[in-house]
Every structure is written in C-alpha cells, then in structure tokens.
Design a protein around this nucleic acid. Structure first.
Length: 561
RNA sequence: GCGCCUGUAGCUCAGUUGGAUAGAGCAACUGCCUUCUAAGCAGUGGGCCAGGGGUUCGAAUCCCUUCAGGCGCGCCA
C-alpha cells in the first residue's frame, strides 16, 4: 500500500509513481505491493524527502539494504527534478529537489494562490459539525470557548478541503436545566418584589441570575401581569424569558468571538414536532425497543454498549437520551455523508450509545464521528478555579476575550490537540498576551504587507499578478523557505484528514519563524531590481500561505500592527 | 472495581501515524532599533520522552504491566 497521507506536496504523486515503477522492476513480483513510505526528514542534511523502503525490503529480499537502495536509485529515470539522490545511514534514500523545480512550483503557488494550497478531499460531500451546544442556562465559560474555536476551525478546514459544511448548535431548551434556570430567576424575582421565597437547592447562583430577574421585572412584569399569575404560570413565563435571554447572550458571545452557525436546532421543537415520538417508533419498528420494569428501553447492547438505556422512565417522562436520539435521527435524515459531534470529554461515556443509535438506524457507526475536547482546567495565579454555573463561580469566555482579545484566545486553544488536557492560568494568559505567539504569525503577515508598500513607494514596478523572477537568484535561506511553503499542501491535507486544525497553527508558527530571521538578515526591496523581484515573489507566496492558514483558524491577518 | 484521556525542558505544549542527533513558545541570562515595523533578531543554559518489560533493522510513537493525574460509569442533564 502506498502511504497516501504522506504523498502529495512537491509533486509527490510523481515521485510515488516513479518509486513504484522502480520497485516493480527492481523487486520480485511478490514484493511489488510493498508499502512505500515517504517522509520528511528532520535533519536538513538528509534531503527534502526520504524513504526507508530499502530497509523494509532487506529481509524479504535477503540482501543488504544499502545494496537494494543502490539498485533502486540506479533505476530512477527522470532524475532532473532532483538536485541529488543520496543513500545514507542504514539504507535511507534521500531526495533533494532541484532549485529549478522548486521555483517552478513557487510560481505555480503564486499563480494559483489558494488553489495550490488546498486539496479537494471532500469532493462535495456534505458534513455537519455540531459544536458548543451549551445549555442556555448561563454565559459561555472558557471550556465552551475551546469547543467553539475548534469547531469553527474544523469547519473552515473541511470547507477548504472541499466539503459542504453545516455548522449546528443544539439548544437544550426543554430539559430540567432550563427549568432550574427559571426557578432560580423566579426565586430572585420574588425576593426583588419583597416576597419571602426560598432559593431552591441546586439552583444557579451567578450574578446573571439577579440581572435576569431585574430585567424581567422591568420589561415583562406589566405585560404578563405577574402579580396575578400563579407561581406555576409565572415560572413558565420566567423560564421562557430567561433562557431566551441567555441564548441571545450566547449568540452575542459567539458572534464577537467570530464563531457562526448555519443552524440552531431546538430540543423543544423536536418535541413539538413529534420527532421524539417518531424516532422511538422508528426504533421500535426496527426491533430495538422493549419494555421492562415499567420503563421503555433502547437495546444499545446490540451494538456494543455496556448496557441498555432507558428512554422513557417509569413515571412516563423522557430521559435526556430520547430527544438526543431524535436529534441524531434528524441529522441522518438531512442526508449528511458524515456527522461530526464535538463534545466535552466529560460526555465520552455517551459515545457508544450514540453510535448504537446510528447503527440501529441502519448506518455504520463511523457515520457519526465524535471529537472529544478535553477539559480546560482553570487556574488563577496557580490555584485551580472551580467551574460551576450552579455555584456561580466560573470564568466566562467573554471575560477572557475582552481581556486578551479574540485572536489570542483562539490561538490559545488551537495550539493544542483536542485530546490534550489544557491548563490555563488566567493570570499567565493575561501577562503573556502581549507576547503571544499569535502576534508572531500576524506580525509576519503585517511585515510583508509593509514590504509591498515600500516596493510601491520605490516605484519598483512590481505587479502582484505578474510572476516574473529569476529563481537562480535565491539563496540558501530562501530555498529553505520555499521548501517550507511547498509543504503546506501536505500539511493541510493531513490536518483535514485527521480533523486536527492545530497542525496549521504549528505550521504557521514555523513559517513565521523562518520569515522573521530572513527579514532581519536580508533586505527585500533594494537597488538590485532582479533580486528585489525574486524576493517580492517569495514574500508574496509567504503571505498567501499565512493568510490561508489564519483564515482557517479564524484569526485575523492584519495589514499592519 | 470497570472504561476513556493524559504523562515529553522549570512552565504551557508540538512531535509529520514506526525512522536518522527529541523540538517550539514562555520563563532565565548576554547582546542588537539613523534601514522594508524591536509584537522582531542573534546567542547561552536546560531531557532517564513517568518506571519496567516486550515486538524489530529502528520505539516518545505499537503491545503488556506498574505508578500518577483528569473525566466518566443513573429511570440526572
């Protein structure tokens, strides 16, 4: 098998073909289907690309790996795209591309722009990504921010990779949590109008509860004639008011964070449209529903779950799981080719039962891909901060956003793998905000911009759309940067396949880390017109790549800083 | 007790899905602004990849095991 994931950039497809042809010639037929791995060596001295293929063949062929490597190299035909091909160490074959070839690719990058960078791996497939989906019972906290940043970046990434993406937020507006919110606000409201009213256990306690109560009093009291209502009716009014207010606040937070959704699916609406009942009937028809001890169960063990799950309690209420079934059935019916849920890792126990639902409905469990985002542990000056809406003690996304900025906040989340536990010390984050890596990347972009301004002032006559430069003029450092640029498509592809936007973040830092020293050392706009043109072309390419990466991350690419 | 995630520099984290001498940013210390932006650059120090076994040409990466931390194991949501 050819390792497709690694094969792409620097026209690797060509190389893959070459190597495979060669192998067929060089190796017995029975070994022709051997795995061809192609990698990027860590050490620069080992060329631009490398294959350990000879070592893998040593045993079956019963020949020394270096000898096999020699045979392979000798039978390579179109060597002109390479500057050299070395055999190194125990039998690595190292390929170094020619300047000529690299410059041709660079030109193509500048001409095709984003189209050079992306690869259509989605082929128009429709995918839905559901993320955040925080209960509308309080403001978003920092943990939600992580999900938001990831979901948005992944959506962008997959969109660029040729998928048709729908971003959805599932609103839990029907359950106990929302009722608790209503009760909390009701109690506060009663207290506000001077009525002795117990503040129930388990209720939400944040300051925002009081704000909601006040707001209700000011704007709704007269309308609903609350004095005349029974407590139960009043609770309904208040609950409705409160969660809608919270949802608006959440939408505002997300919009200010630069995160947008195409679809907002209400749990309540699922009930109202009878979709919960339909979903259960559907499963019943398929034979996965049964009654036991007065309750209604879903036979999730049929598909590998630990135990069967109750969907209708003995008292007749639905469990939380029931609307979730309806919700996922709805996703399926919308006809997506793939469904992605981004959940907090504390919900990981629900993955098997949800995938059981998918399978019960006749789809492979891979149809639903659940990405678990690990917990964000919050510290303040080294001490852990408990995150609890009920206790009313938590750090909001808004707070952090306002303090250190949206770009910095996003970058903070996107420089981590989703499944790494994340520790954020809010004091440290604030202290470091002015030296955050995000600025390093943005600064590179802004600097390039001012280079072009300079070029315009100097009347160099450079037109961004005209790519006319002499590649022979590039020095070592410039060649290194070009190689890095040409790696972007492979990195992009791998990030998209793995659903890991953080790879882009790291790549951008590396690229910026090559540009800044280069900038410092070499003047781009100089009296030598030919060199200037070549360097401007390089800068243009860097800017194209930076812009594309930042776009995916949802981070601004400023013209100046 | 069972399951999932994690353990890499003082701190926060990468490590191209098994490759060659393990990287970056902070923090610490030394230098550099009449030049296209110093949110930058140059340099120094810092490691038993949690421990132990195994698999093979080759392991931070795969398997087993021990330890440590986080999170789950409801007719809660």
């Amino acid at each position: 098998m050819i390792d497709n994931q690694l094969v792409r950039c620097l026209n690797l497809t060509v190389m893959e073909k070459i190597l495979r042809e060669i192998l067929k010639k060089a190796v017995n037929a029975q070994y022709a289907e051997v795995s061809i791995e192609i990698e990027i060596p860590k050490e620069e001295g080992f060329g631009d690309l490398s294959t350990p293929i000879a070592m893998g063949l040593a045993k079956p062929l019963k020949k020394p790996p270096r000898k096999i490597a020699e045979d392979i190299v000798n039978s390579i035909e179109n060597k002109e795209i390479f500057e050299k091909i070395d055999i190194a160490g125990p039998g690595f074959i190292n390929f170094t591309f020619s300047k000529r070839y690299l410059c041709d690719e660079l030109k193509e990058l500048i001409e095709k722009q984003d189209n050079f960078l992306i690869e259509d791996i989605g082929k128009g497939k429709r995918v839905q990504i559901e993320f955040v989906s925080a209960n509308p019972t309080g403001p978003l906290h920092l943990g939600h921010g992580r999900g938001a940043a990831l979901g948005a970046a992944l959506s962008n990434l997959l969109t660029e990779a040729g998928y048709r993406v729908e971003r959805e937020y599932y609103i839990n507006d029907a359950g106990r949590q929302v009722r608790l919110l209503g009760m909390s606000v009701l109690a506060k409201y009663k207290q506000l109008i001077g009525i002795e009213y117990p503040f129930p256990e388990d209720c939400y306690k944040g300051e925002y509860i009081e704000d909601l109560a006040k707001e209700f009093k000011e704007s709704q009291e007269s309308r609903v004639k609350s004095q005349e209502l029974k407590d139960e009716e009043l609770l309904e009014e208040i609950t409705d008011f409160a969660y809608k207010k919270m949802l608006d606040a959440i939408k505002k937070d997300l919009a200010d964070f630069g995160v947008f959704f195409d679809s907002w699916q209400s749990e309540k609406v699922l009930y109202e449209k009878g979709e919960v009942v339909q979903a259960i009937n559907d499963l019943k028809k398929r034979g996965y529903i049964y009654e036991k001890e007065g309750a209604t169960w879903f036979k999730s063990t049929e598909f590998g779950d630990d135990k069967d799950r109750v969907i209708i309690k003995r008292e007749g209420d639905y469990t939380y799981f029931a609307p979730d079934i309806a919700y996922h059935r709805k996703k399926i019916e919308k006809g997506f080719d793939e469904i992605i849920d981004i959940w907090g890792a504390d919900h990981h126990g629900y993955v098997p039962r949800m995938q059981a639902v998918i399978q019960a409905l006749g789809y492979p469990k891979e149809h639903l891909r659940v990405l678990l985002v690990q917990m964000v542990t919050l510290l303040r000056g080294g001490k852990p901060v408990q995150m609890s809406k009920r206790a009313g003690e938590f750090i909001t996304l808004r707070e952090v956003m306002d303090e250190i900025g949206t770009d910095t906040t996003k970058f903070l989340f996107l420089t981590r793998r989703a499944d790494s536990h994340l520790e954020v010390d809010i004091e440290v984050a604030k202290a470091q905000s002015s030296e955050n890596p995000v600025y390093y990347v943005q600064y590179a972009h802004a600097r390039i911009n001012s280079i072009f301004e300079k070029a315009r002032q100097e009347a160099i006559g450079y037109r961004q759309e005209v790519i006319d430069f002499n590649g022979e003029l590039f020095n070592e450092e410039e060649i290194r940067i070009i190689k890095k640029l040409l790696l972007y498509p492979m990195m992009f592809r791998n990030a998209a396949i793995a659903h890991e936007p953080h790879r882009i973040t790291f790549y951008l830092q590396e690229l910026a880390g090559m540009f800044h020293p280069y900038y410092h050392k070499h003047r781009v706009v100089s009296e030598d017109l030919e060199i200037t043109k070549a360097r401007l072309a390089l800068c243009k390419a860097i800017q194209i790549v930076l812009r594309h990466g930042l776009k995916i991350l949802g981070v601004k690419a400023p013209e100046r800083m």
